[in-house]
Design a protein around this nucleic acid. Structure first.
Length: 569
RNA sequence: CGGAAUAUAGCUCAGCUUGGUAGAGCGCUGCCUUCGGGAGGCAGAGGUCGCAGGUUCGAAUCCUGCUAUUCCGACCA
């Protein structure tokens, strides 16, 4: 490509509405432009990277035995009625009517469509297992689109759905997809981790997320220092440090705490160690009524874990001030488990506490010196909290540390959730109709591009990994208008590189070199060759990698080999 | 949807407190000069100051309502 023929829309200044670096650089490098909230146009330059991601994803999916299909973005509402998600999905599902006033939605995902297809097309266990994927536009009417294409409403996803007669077969394909995803993110040159995840609203059993590690990531992911245990913090099991509860030392006593409405205030004003306090959180119960959840003062409630408890209403809903006051007779700052008349569920570490402090269920008063079994019956035990740095690893090997990640892929074992709801069966070896087992596997293709930039940039701009670079090599002729030699050499090299199958950008723009250098660095082109009369007189070209501090002089005759080596080809 | 902020040229912003009819830098067009790291000069184009009302002789500026965008929370690839 000749730069003079390419829409290069670089910006010197950072647009004011871009918060994170990838969003800023995608705008500045002229990859995307915003149309409306959460809706972006991909400009020619940005689209090239998007296509490179798609190509790698496609190659690896094909290699893993999946078949590509393409399903419509618009889906009939009746399929969603059938699966039950028309009601469940909520306002994130964009619903539309056609001219006959029939209901449709713009697909946020395609379980319904693929299940409908497969129940019609596949009738026998002999046709299984099979796995279908597409790379297609999704729409989710996010409450808060943000960070450019990182969380947009319209985005491109690779989604795959596998079908099986039994769990064993599902587990095999799941593993194959796990491996394919690992290859994909490795080929993309990303620093990523696969972590155990909660299944969320999609339901089913096993699930892993693939995260690109980045400080701006929206998820907290947890690793063991002593094993390969890794999980989303939503899922990571919190294991108490010890097994035994210390014997009571103090008598329980009532303390006036008129100004201590928070744990921090209680600790400050009354000299209680934060590990000796508990938070009492009142939430709505599954069967109506209220449920109390206890975590240690220095721990955080894990809402996913709480919501998965049978006693607790999903989605997790904190009780209102009025409801609490009516049920307990005290307000939020003074709640505690002693004498509390509702189901009480305590985090494991809470049950190991002794001589602790908690609200007395009387406004402005706390009990100190509380002890289980002596002052109140032992509460029901559950894992309720987020793990923290230094907790023991659940597999018993090492301790946990926490990092930030951007979720770029997610694989699920769905089981028979959709096939049951939509009556998708096949005949097994005994001629008996059995519901199809399903797995589903997603990659946020547009998000991968943003995540790659989060991980690969410097103060000058993007630094594309080789596999994602829109162009691998940029040629910059110096003073081309003055030098026939420079022009000819540049043209010749341009043809040579094209013939070698290298994506090359010839910067033939009629602008000053400094502007070209700045643009090419902003745009992240990995390899740059400057063609100047000075060097040519010595038979040399000047090479500079995007990450290099200094340029290298390379004999003209060896430039193709030199580049090939630098590109790792 | 709850909380906060912002809205003036393609981009980044000033002007608003104290009302008098539109500004800068970058970008864009033409010409000249320059040409190894976002050059310089000259001449230009470009804005019903987010929208709708109100106050006033007069509103970008004051008031009211709306809309959009961004940030913080809950959802997700």
């Amino acid at each position: 490509m000749r730069a003079s023929q390419l829409l290069i829309s670089t910006l010197k200044e950072t647009p004011a509405d871009a918060e994170i670096i990838s969003h800023q650089l995608m705008l500045r490098a002229g990859m995307i432009r915003r149309l409306a909230s959460g809706l972006y146009t991909w400009l020619p330059f940005g689209l090239r990277t998007l296509r490179k991601v798609e190509r790698i994803v496609r190659e690896e999916m094909d290699r893993a035995g999946a078949q590509e299909v393409l399903m419509p973005a618009v889906q009939p509402g009746e399929l969603w009625q059938e699966s039950g998600r028309w009601e469940q999905y909520g306002p994130e599902l964009l619903r539309v009517h056609d001219r006959h006033n029939r209901e449709f939605c713009i697909g946020p995902t395609h379980e319904e469509v693929i299940t409908d297809l497969i129940r019609k097309e596949i009738n026998s266990y002999k046709q299984l297992p099979s796995n279908f994927y597409q790379i297609q536009t999704k729409f989710r009417d996010e409450i808060r689109p943000r960070f450019g294409v990182m969380r947009s409403r319209e985005f491109i996803m690779k989604d795959a759905y596998s079908f099986h007669v039994d769990q064993t077969s599902l587990a095999e394909t799941y593993q194959a997809m796990y491996d394919a995803y690992s290859r994909i993110f490795t080929r993309l040159g990303l620093d990523f981790r696969a972590v155990m995840a909660d299944n969320g609203s999609i339901g089913g059993e096993g699930s892993h997320e693939f995260h690109v590690l980045a400080a701006s990531g929206e998820d907290a992911i947890v690793f063991s220092t002593g094993s390969d245990y890794a999980a989303n913090i939503e899922k990571a099991e919190a294991v108490p440090h010890g097994m035994d509860r210390a014997a009571p030392q103090e008598a329980m006593h009532l303390v006036d705490t008129p100004d201590a409405k928070t744990i921090a205030a209680l600790v400050d004003q009354h000299g209680l160690a934060i590990e000796k306090t508990i938070k009492t959180l009142i939430v709505e119960g599954a069967e109506g009524g209220l449920v109390a959840l206890l975590v240690r003062g220095d721990h955080e409630l894990n809402e996913i874990k709480a919501e998965n408890l049978p006693e607790v209403k999903a989605p997790l809903t904190m009780a209102s001030d009025e409801d609490v006051r009516q049920a307990v007779g005290a307000g939020f700052g003074s709640l505690g488990p002693v004498g509390l008349d509702m189901p009480i569920i305590a985090d494991r570490s809470v049950l190991l506490m002794s001589d602790f402090g908690a609200g007395a269920n009387i406004d402005g008063k706390h009990y100190f010196g509380i002890n289980w079994e002596r002052d109140l019956p032992l509460a029901k035990e559950a894992d309720l909290r987020n793990v923290i740095e230094g907790d023991p690893s659940p597999d018993g090997l090492g301790t946990l540390s926490i990092a930030r990640g951007i979720e770029v892929g997610h694989i699920f074992q769905l089981g028979t959730k959709y096939s049951n709801a939509m009556n998708a069966t096949v005949l097994d070896e005994n001629g008996k109709a059995v519901p199809l087992m399903m797995g589903c596997y997603g990659i946020g293709v547009t998000r991968v591009v943003a995540a790659a930039i989060e991980q690969n940039h410097d103060e000058r701009g993007i630094i594309w990994p080789e596999a994602l670079a829109p162009y691998s090599v940029a040629l910059v002729p110096m003073n081309a208008h003055k030098s026939e030699l420079v022009r000819e050499t540049a043209e010749h090299l341009y043809s040579q590189l094209q013939a070698a199958g290298i994506d090359v950008l010839l910067d033939d723009r009629d602008i000053r070199p400094g502007v070209k250098f700045a643009d090419l660095e902003l745009m992240g082109i990995p390899h740059r060759i400057v063609i100047g009369e000075r060097g040519l007189n010595n038979g040399e070209l000047e090479y500079k990698g995007r990450k290099d501090d200094e340029a290298t002089l390379v004999p003209q005759a060896t430039i193709i080999d030199f580049l090939a080596e630098r590109m790792g080809r």
